[in-house]
Simulated assay, not measured.
Amino acid sequence: MLKKKRLIAIALVILLGLFSFVPIPAYIETVGDAQNVGRYVTVSGSQKAYPGSFMLTYVELGQATPALYVASYFDKYATRLPSSSVTGASSAKEYKKVQHYYMDDALNQAKTVSLSLAGKPVKQNFKGIVVMSILKDSAFKDKLRVGDVITGVNGQRCVKTTDLLQCVHHTKQAVMSLRYQRNGETKTVTGRMNYLPQINKRGLGITFIQKAVVSSPVKIKINMDGIEGPSAGLMLTLEMYSQLSHENLKKGRKITGTGTILSDGAVGDIGGIDKKVVAAARKKAVIFFAPDNTLTQEERTAGDRNNYQEAKKTAQKLSTKMKIVPVKNIQDALSYLRKSSH
């Protein structure tokens, strides 16, 4: 009898461990936090900061266990997502690597835009095109890997995404040759241009971002302390610009927001904006910048909302006095901050 009870106890411990710690093919996304960007960014020669803060917002996203999945039903802001909608065809390790590349790109673009706006010398030295994902219908599936850096196409040097896109869209060749770097080695791979139903056109079937090094006599030190992804681009740019220009944009206010940033200053869409609005409201922010990009006809027909519309709806539900401000580019944010005092 004692032996039987011991076996039952062991079985229960094993089941409890499986329930609590073994991951399942799902992720839980919920409200994260809003943090002062100034704690991550230091610009050489910057003067004493003006009162107030620019704050980045982020969501908490983690792979679920059975216990976490059940517990998420008690969190009204939690969203349960299948792994495929988060990582796509990538492994969890590849997904983490991709988010790191996205953050590196966001930092480069934020540096470039803020230095340019402040009238400081800046140059982007392009090193290649980083492979971020490979569609299952791509001829380069199982040939390229996430993190490979493309440096040439059809025997010609190609280190900018615009050049690669132009080559793909205008070539009449059926087979493309890509030169790339992996673990310090340079290799070449060929593949046929296929019709890709995901994009409704012929292409390589890979997604990518530019790999670049930003150089300037003005040094900007950044330590993101484990925060990954591209969505902090807008707020990083505002913080860098405020330190570079010494312009009093904060005026004692807690200013939050989200959105990617491109080298031309355009602000791009992000995910989880409803949860970021909640995080900002909890920190008593008075302003929240939200990307306000145009929806496609199909999206409007389906009743979809863009980031700004979703953020405004969430703010109304919270009954917060925080102002939701639509932005399409960095100048929209700067113009609002200069004109407003609350």
Rank of each mutant, 00 (worst) to 15 (best):
L2A: 14
G17N: 04
G38H: 08
D75H: 06
K4Y: 12
K284E: 14
G191T: 04
F208M: 13
Y195G: 05
G265T: 03
P82Y: 05
V278I: 12
S242F: 10
P291Y: 11
I324Y: 01
K312T: 06
K283Q: 13
V149K: 05
K321L: 11
V149A: 02
V175C: 06
T190V: 11
S114H: 01
K321E: 14
M103A: 07
L107N: 05
K211R: 13
D148W: 00
L164H: 01
T171G: 05
K111S: 09
Y180F: 14
T258L: 02
G259M: 08
G272H: 01
A9R: 11
D33P: 03
G233D: 07
Y77L: 02
F54W: 10
P230G: 05
K201F: 02
S114G: 04
K219L: 13
G272V: 00
P25R: 10
L236Y: 11
Y102G: 10
S72H: 06
M176P: 01
Y50F: 15
T65H: 06
V327A: 11
H246M: 00
V122I: 12
Q109A: 13
Y180Q: 02
S216V: 03
A281C: 08
G191H: 06
N307Y: 00
Y95G: 07
M322R: 07
A174F: 10
P23L: 05
V213G: 00
S245D: 11
D142V: 00
V146R: 02
V214I: 15
L244Q: 09
T162A: 14
Y40R: 02
L262E: 14
M235T: 01
K211N: 13
V70A: 14
Q99V: 12
V214P: 01
D137L: 09
L165S: 15
G229M: 08
K276F: 00
V98G: 03
L337P: 07
Y180K: 04
N307I: 00
K3W: 07
Y336V: 00
L318V: 07
E299N: 08
A139I: 03
T301V: 13
A67M: 15
G147H: 02
S335C: 00
K339D: 12
L249Q: 04
P291A: 10
S133G: 15
Q166V: 08
V43W: 04
V286A: 08
A78D: 01
K93A: 14
G272Y: 02
I8H: 01
N183M: 09
T301Q: 14
T188Y: 08
Q166G: 15
G205S: 03
G128C: 11
N183D: 15
G152V: 09
P230S: 09
A89L: 14
I199A: 09
D105H: 14
F208E: 03
A174I: 06
L135I: 12
S133L: 08
Q63M: 07
G119N: 06
Y27A: 03
V43M: 09
S242P: 07
Y40A: 13
G191E: 06
R305H: 09
T186C: 05
L334M: 01
K276R: 09
V146N: 00
S44R: 12
A67L: 15
Q181W: 07
A110R: 00
